[in-house]
Simulated assay, not measured.
Amino acid sequence: MAIEARHGGAADALPLVLLPGTLCDSRIWLAHVAALSRQREVIVPQIGLEVSLSGEASRLLAMLPRRFALGGFSLGAILAFELVRQARQRVAGLCIVSSTARADAPRNLTLRRLQLERFEAGEVQALMEQEMLPGYFHPGADAESRQRWSERVLTMARETPAAVFRNQVRYAISRPDSMSTLAAMQVPVQVQCGQNDQLCPPQRQAEMVFVRSGCSLVRVPDCGHFLPIEAERSSIISMEKWLDCVCNGIPEQAA
Rank of each mutant, 00 (worst) to 15 (best):
M1R: 10
A2G: 13
H7C: 05
A10R: 14
A11I: 03
L16K: 06
L18N: 09
C24M: 14
D25Q: 08
D25I: 03
S26A: 14
L30C: 08
A31H: 14
A31R: 10
V33S: 04
A35W: 12
A35D: 13
R38I: 00
Q39G: 15
E41H: 05
V42P: 14
S58E: 14
R59S: 02
R59K: 03
L61P: 03
A62Q: 14
R67F: 02
A69N: 02
L70G: 04
L75F: 08
I78R: 05
L79I: 05
V84M: 07
R85N: 10
A92R: 13
I96Q: 06
A103R: 11
P106Y: 03
L109W: 01
L111M: 13
R113M: 13
R113V: 04
R113C: 06
Q115W: 11
E120H: 07
G122W: 01
L127F: 09
M132Y: 15
H138R: 02
E144W: 03
S145I: 01
Q147C: 08
N167W: 13
R170E: 09
S174R: 07
A184V: 00
Q186C: 02
V191M: 08
G194P: 01
Q195V: 02
L199D: 13
P202W: 11
M208W: 06
R212F: 01
S213Y: 01
G214C: 04
G214K: 03
S216K: 13
V218I: 11
V218N: 08
P221S: 01
I229L: 14
E230R: 07
S234I: 09
V246K: 08
C247Y: 02
C247H: 03
Q253G: 04
A254D: 12
